[in-house]
C-alpha cells in the first residue's frame, strides 16, 4: 500500500485549506434524477434482455428434458425482459436514480485517461503512462498541490515497478528491469 507516512505528513500541512469538505459532502443529499432516468433504468436492461433473447433463440432452445445451449439464457432473458417492463411501468417506485452533474465530466475524463493507459501500455510499457495517469488524477481530477503531484506518481510507480516487475515477476510490459 503506497507510501502512507509521506502522504500523511503532506496532508497534515494542508488540512486547514481542505477544511471540512467531507462534512459538506455528507450533508449534501443526493439529488434524485428526473423522469428520463427511470426510462433509462428500465430501457437499458430491456434492450439487453431482447438482444440476449434473440441470441438465445439463435443458439437453439430444445426442450426442458433435452435442452439446447440457448434454453437457459432464453429463460433468463425472458425474466429480465419482464422485470425491466416492471421497472418501466413502475417509474421510480423501485428506488431513486441520482442525477448527473458536473462531476460526471470528471468521471468521463477519468475513464478516458484509463483507456489511454490501456492503449499505451503494450506500446511503451507501464511506467510512463502510470506516472502521467497518476499526475492527471491528482492534479486535474483531485486538485492536489504540485508538491503531491511531484512526489506521489513517481514514488508509486517506483513501488509498483519493484513490487510487480522485480518482486512478483509479472510479465507486464515495462521499460527496464534490474
Amino acid at each position: 500500500m503506497g507510501v502512507p507516512t509521506r502522504r500523511s505528513q503532506d496532508t497534515a500541512t494542508q488540512s486547514e485549506e481542505v477544511g471540512v469538505v467531507e462534512a459538506d459532502v455528507d450533508d449534501e443529499a443526493v439529488t434524485p434524477a428526473g423522469a428520463w432516468s427511470h426510462l433509462v433504468a428500465g430501457g437499458v436492461p430491456l434492450a439487453f434482455g431482447v438482444v440476449m433473447m434473440l441470441g438465445s433463440i439463435n443458439l437453439g432452445l430444445g426442450s426442458p428434458t433435452s435442452p439446447q445451449p440457448g434454453l437457459w439464457p432464453f429463460a433468463l432473458s425472458v425474466l429480465l425482459i419482464a422485470l425491466s417492463i416492471g421497472l418501466l411501468v413502475g417509474r421510480g417506485r423501485f428506488g431513486p436514480c441520482e442525477s448527473f452533474g458536473s462531476g460526471t465530466l470528471t468521471v468521463i475524463a477519468g475513464v478516458g485517461s484509463i483507456a489511454a493507459f490501456t492503449i499505451l501500455l503494450p506500446l511503451i510499457g507501464f511506467e510512463i503512462p502510470a506516472i502521467v495517469l497518476a499526475a492527471f488524477w491528482l492534479k486535474i481530477l483531485g486538485q492536489e498541490s504540485w508538491r503531491v503531484v511531484a512526489m506521489v506518481p513517481i514514488l508509486c510507480t517506483a513501488a509498483f515497478h519493484l513490487l510487480f516487475v522485480e518482486g512478483l515477476g509479472v510479465a507486464i510490459p515495462h521499460l527496464f528491469s534490474f
Partner: peptide, 13 residues
Amino acid sequence: QVRASIMAPITVM
C-alpha cells in the same frame, strides 16, 4: 488524514 483524491489514483494503478 489521507485524502481520497490521493488514494484514488493509487487504487486505479
